[in-house]
Design a protein around this nucleic acid. Sequence first.
DNA 1: ATACTGATTAGAGTAAACTCTAAGTCAAGG
DNA 2: CCTTGACTTAGAGTTTACTCTAATCAGTAT
Lengths: 122, 122
Amino acid sequence: MYTIGEVAKLLNVTTHTLRFYEKEKIITPERTEHGDRRYSESHLQWLRFVIKLKETKMPLVQIQEYASLFLQGDRTTQKRLGLLKNHQEHVQNQIHVLNEIDDMLRKKISAYEEYLQKRDFS
Amino acid sequence: MYTIGEVAKLLNVTTHTLRFYEKEKIITPERTEHGDRRYSESHLQWLRFVIKLKETKMPLVQIQEYASLFLQGDRTTQKRLGLLKNHQEHVQNQIHVLNEIDDMLRKKISAYEEYLQKRDFS
DNA sequence: ATACTGATTAGAGTAAACTCTAAGTCAAGG
DNA sequence: CCTTGACTTAGAGTTTACTCTAATCAGTAT
């Protein structure tokens, strides 16, 4: 079990962010008798997953939705699957777009380099 | 030459956004005698490029910087090249991260599917 | 005893990137 | 002639995702 400070350090977020996620019902850690948050391994895993999803521009509201499906348990498995598939498409699309841009940049860069070379030798 | 409304439609942005970009010195279209904005083909190309850059999470301030280098002309070619290379690295990194996530999703999805199948047959 | 550390809360503030409103002018097209 | 679509400045409002403040409390260290 980890304290909020430990989790923050491990995941490179601030304690503020963790409390914010709790307010937004994205994660609900346990509490000690004194009311301090305690995060388990599985909480950590879930948070790592959330952070990954964020890296793909998934908006918090969607992450929220996914989280709430989890809390509703087994009968939402289909829905969760749908959500994941949907998001995967999204990610694959992003990859596609980024590859295009990479290409574009490559071209622009070599155009610049060619230009600079010509100028050097003239 | 295109009016602001035409450009907005072509690029799927609002006229507000185009004026906003102008205020932010990202683009400076010509003007008619009456002061109406007129965008040329090359303005369009530049805007398309800007939009592409935005899809890679490049913040407006960086786009601004790039734009201002352009306006300063030839002697900033090196700097622009540097900026582009820098950004290309960024993009490639994003591609990498997204591929990882795609992988993760694939695994999660097939775990879900397996689970659902088992349940169907039991 | 008191200072420090790290926890708690509600709620205010921030940054980015728009997005829109107001309130007015101007000129071309049907 | 009137509607449409452009223009202007200035500034307010929105959304997302934090980010921070203030006031307080509990446990440990000196």
